[in-house]
Simulated scan of single mutants.
Amino acid sequence: MRVGLFVTCLIDLMRPEIGFSVIKLIERAGFEVVVPPAQTCCGQPAYNSGDRRLARDLAEKMLREFEQFDYVVVPSGSCGGMVGVHYGDLFRDDPELMSRYGRLRPKVFELTDFLVNVAKIELGPLGFEGTVTYHDSCSGLRELGVKAQPRALLAQAGVAVAEMKGCEHCCGFGGTFAVKYGNISTAIVDEKCANIQASGAGAVVLGDLGCMLNIEGRLRRNGDTTTRVLHIAQVLAGDA
């Protein structure tokens, strides 16, 4: 079966190696992976900023490029939430687009949800050294119900997890929130970094690159040069 991989802007521009780890995992589960070369943004920044026209244009573009596939996998809770939850709002006044979206929506999965509930992948021990803690990104957790899936995969892979205090609390990124409300964002991410360090884990693992960049940036600015910040695909693919 063919999986369309929606790479996401941040992975494409900032951490392309994560995209290759995602492909490795999906292919290991027995699926053909296709990465449409013309894909761009899911429209979330425009949607969150109130620019519905641009958000809808991008949503229509995504729909055209991905509706042909058996499944669509998104290695980001925030982009997955945008496609899986908010496109319905953008298309609500267009019956034809809404019908097409209705056929696409059940095929869209966040990466770990896909690996657990569709691919039913079986991972052996990876030999990953050390303990990790897991950060539950807001959109993946609250919009897509991603909570048990990444932990189940880490357990399969023999990766020890030490849960941090407030693992479900926001990291303070929130897209443009971090720009508009910098002081509040900084206070939130400082609390997150303190909880990561208090867990005793040598790495924090997560499934959303926005959170990843925000947490890693703040850890480094605060002088922590040793705590690793990893996308779960990197860990599960053996690339960490």
Rank of each mutant, 00 (worst) to 15 (best):
Y101S: 08
T227G: 01
A203S: 06
A233H: 01
S199V: 04
M212G: 10
C42L: 12
I11P: 04
C193A: 15
G158R: 13
L13E: 11
M98N: 02
A55G: 11
V22L: 09
T112A: 02
R142I: 04
N214F: 06
E67C: 02
M212F: 05
Y181N: 11
E143Q: 15
D94A: 10
I232V: 15
F128I: 05
N195V: 05
M62F: 15
Q234H: 04
K24R: 15
Y134T: 01
G217T: 09
D136R: 04
A148S: 14
L154M: 11
G223A: 12
I196V: 14
Y181S: 08
D94T: 03
N117W: 01
A46C: 01
T176I: 13
R228S: 11
L230T: 07
V116M: 08
D12E: 11
I188W: 05
A38H: 08
A46D: 08
V146E: 02
C171L: 03
R218G: 03
R52P: 00
H135D: 03
D12W: 00
T40R: 12
P75I: 09
A187P: 01
C170N: 07
N117Q: 09
I215M: 10
I26T: 14
C9I: 09
K61H: 14
C171H: 06
L90Y: 05
C170W: 08
V34K: 04
P36Y: 12
L13H: 02
R105M: 12
S99H: 04
N48A: 12
R220M: 03
E122C: 07
M1H: 07
G200Y: 08
T40Q: 11
A162S: 07
A46Q: 12
P75S: 10
P150H: 15
P75T: 05
G210Y: 00
T186S: 15
C211P: 05
L5N: 00
Y181A: 12
R228V: 11
V132F: 07
E27P: 05
A148Y: 13
A59Q: 05
N214K: 14
G50L: 09
P37I: 11
D224E: 13
Q68G: 15
V3A: 09
D136E: 07
R100C: 02
A237H: 05
F31R: 13
I184R: 10
D239K: 02
G88Q: 07
D208Y: 14
I18R: 11
A152G: 02
G30I: 07
E163A: 08
A240F: 06
A29N: 13
V72N: 10
A187V: 04
V72H: 13
L115Q: 14
R92W: 00
N48Q: 08
G124R: 13
V85L: 15
E65L: 14
C42M: 07
C41Y: 07
T186F: 00
K192C: 10
P95T: 00
G4E: 10
T226M: 02
L58E: 01
E60F: 00
Q39N: 02
A119D: 05
L13T: 12
R64I: 04
F31C: 14
E163I: 10
E17C: 08
F6L: 14
V73Y: 07
G80K: 12
T176N: 03
F91M: 06
D136A: 15
D51W: 10
Q197S: 14
G217D: 12
N195Y: 07
H86G: 07
I23W: 06
G130N: 03
D136F: 08
